[in-house]
Design a protein around this nucleic acid. Structure first.
Lengths: 219, 219
DNA sequence: GATGATTTGTACGTATGTATA
DNA sequence: ATATACATACGTACAAATCAT
């Protein structure tokens, strides 16, 4: 009945620490002392070590042998690298979705997108952010390629903290919605190259919006 | 002087086990017993565990909590998934290289490719395989994007065991060389979309060649 | 289905390498 | 530069869960 996941301590810890990092509780550059974390979560150092290793494989923390682990500090240059990589990955997903989606998946993508229109008109930023997430997730799934899904999802999660303000500016919701529409039409009609290009365009605009925000914050 | 890497046991083990898997010494589906590996390499279970976790993050092994780890068994379907994902990644790399490579990098790519011609004419399969590897590596580096480089490299390594016979058929060397030439011209001339398309074409042909081989082997 | 054997997951102690005074 | 302090890496022991009978 109950398909209990039966997680192990290390996995739970990895999740907890990841959440703490992504929520900004553990700030970039912070040293991750094994004993301290072990005390905080009331376990021994062993599962803490394994959790740190797992997080290192996602790029969330960095481990230097014998020198401890730190929360990865993301420079603006690295952030641009991440955005560019995600743009390429998502463009590939859109391309493959245009090739591989079943008719049912195409209809589902369209109906989801249509349902989002109301959120735009209501100016519901939070609701749109959620719908936006699902839109992209549907495009991951449409590739029918677990490897690409995994890679794109991992990058998206990693960039999550830096996207919080992405729908802040005036008209951003409407513009994002319009871009989604271009992607949608290309994907649904099987325009493979068009889907690729539309997604690249979309993500590059998101990146631009972010970079403008960081500049504004720096000023 | 000697920038001694000072690797840790876990890293050395991860490398050793990875080599054993990629060389076919440890066959897919084989159970990786921690104690057995610890005995074989004369260490305790702790570094073995960490090595296994690290390998799991690359997809080389799979760990089921409380149920042990096994060398990942790759079905033909998953293999196609891997090839498709790598094709997309490499196409992205070619695209970005066409955008971002410095003049020096473009010249280096061309000179490397030109140097490969002799190997083709000599029918040196092994030499060409090595040159082929470098050609693709140069395109990874040309992206100036460490994330994509890492992802593409990881996928390429993982597919290595299945590519051993890729230059087996008659005329394969010459055909591959010609495809490289198309990629090269697009990248060097900054034809962004052309580089993307040429690489997708190239990798899809490699995949086809492989699939024909597996069918031949199955028959 | 219960019991025993085997293996993983966790705790803890020790030593080596790193950093600091 | 040498020595001291400390955290990590590894080894070992125990607990808990899976599997085999």
């Amino acid at each position: 009945m109950d398909q209990a996941p039966k997680r192990t301590q290390s996995e739970l810890l990895a999740q907890a620490i990841a959440d703490a990092i992504l929520s900004g509780d553990l700030k970039p550059g912070l040293r991750l002392d094994e004993q301290t974390l072990a005390n905080r979560y009331a376990v021994s150092r062993t599962p803490v070590r394994e959790a740190i290793r797992q997080l290192a494989s996602t790029g969330l923390v960095e481990v230097r042998p014998r020198r401890g682990a730190v929360v990865t500090v993301v420079t603006p240059e690295q952030l641009e690298t991440l955005f560019i990589a995600m743009g390429e990955l998502e463009a590939s997903c859109a391309r493959l979705s245009a090739m591989c989606m079943t008719p049912i998946e195409r209809r589902r993508l369209r109906s989801h997108h249509d349902g989002t229109r109301a959120l735009v008109e209501a100016g519901d930023r939070e609701g749109f952010a959620e719908a936006n997430q699902l839109f992209h997730t549907l495009l991951y799934a449409g590739t029918h390629n677990s490897i690409l899904m995994e890679m794109a999802g991992s990058l998206r999660r990693r960039l999550q903290p830096y996207r919080s303000a992405q729908f802040r500016g005036a008209g951003r919701l409407a513009r994002s919605f319009a871009e989604h529409e271009a992607i949608l039409e290309a994907v649904v009609s099987g325009d493979v190259a068009g889907a690729h290009g539309a997604m690249l365009h979309h993500v590059s605009l998101v990146e631009d919006a972010f970079l403008r925000l960081t500049e504004a914050n720096a000023a």
